[in-house]
Amino acid sequence: MGFWGKLIGRGAGWESAQENCAATDMAKQRCCDSSLGLAGTRVGTLGSAASAAGTLCALLALLIWAASVQAQSQNGLFYASSDAPLYAQASDQVAEARITPGTELKPTGSASAGLQPVTLDGWMQEGSTTTLFAAAGQRIVVARLTDPSAQPKVLSSITDPYGNVWHETQLAGFVPGADLVPDQETVWAAAHALFSKRCSACHALHHPTEFTANQWPTILKTMTKNAALQPDQAELVTRYLQAHAKP
C-alpha cells in the first residue's frame, strides 16, 4: 500500500498525519489547525503554505478528496466530514438542508457527477420545523433544514417522559462526495485533535463523558470564545463530544 495508502486508511493514519502537520513549523500548524475542518475541497486556501509540510497537507487533502469519492465504506454507510449540503434533487443549486460533521448517511445508489444519493434518519421535536436530532430527547443535531418549503418524511411519533412530542423523520437527497468519508472515526480523530489542542490550555482536558449529549452544546457555547474556535470548528468539536458523552 505504501506511504500514501497508509494515509488514506483509518483514523490512526489521519492522526499521524495530523501530528506530522503539528510539528515544528508554523505553516504546518496553520494548514492542519485551520478553520477548514477536514474538507479537502478548499485546496486553494492551503496552497499558500510554502513549507514542505504545507505541501504535504495539501496533497493529503487532495488524496482524501479523491479517495472519498471512490471509497467503498466498510459498513455501507457514509459520514459527513464537515458541514455538508443536502440537495433535494441532483440538479439543485440551493441546498435543502445542512448536515453536521460525523452524521451517518445511508447510500441509496451510486455516486454520479460527484453527488452521492443518501437518506438521513433523525428526530424532530414538535414545534420545530428546522432541526433534526439523532434521537428523541438526544439533542445531537444531525441536520438543519434551510429550505422552508422542505417536506421531510415523517415515519412515526412518540411522546417523551417530559411531555415533548418527537417525530421520526427521514430526509432524502444528494450530498457531494467530497464531503463524505467512509469511516466515522476519521471525523472524530480530527475533532479530538482540535479539542485536545484548544481545550487543554486553560484547564485540564475534560473527558467527553463528563457531560451528557444534551449538556455539551451549551457548555461549548460558553467555551468557544475561550478556545478561539471558529463556528465550524465549534460544531465539529460539539458533535464529537456529544457522540462520546455520558449516556
Binding site: S196, S200, L205, H207, K225, N226
Partner: peptide, 18 residues
C-alpha cells in the same frame, strides 16, 4: 468582537484517573 487567543495546551492525559 474578538477572535479569542489560546495558549499552550497540556493535551490528552493517557490516565483516566480523575
Amino acid at each position: 468582537k474578538a477572535p479569542g487567543i489560546v495558549g499552550i495546551s497540556s493535551g490528552d492525559n493517557p490516565s483516566k484517573s480523575v
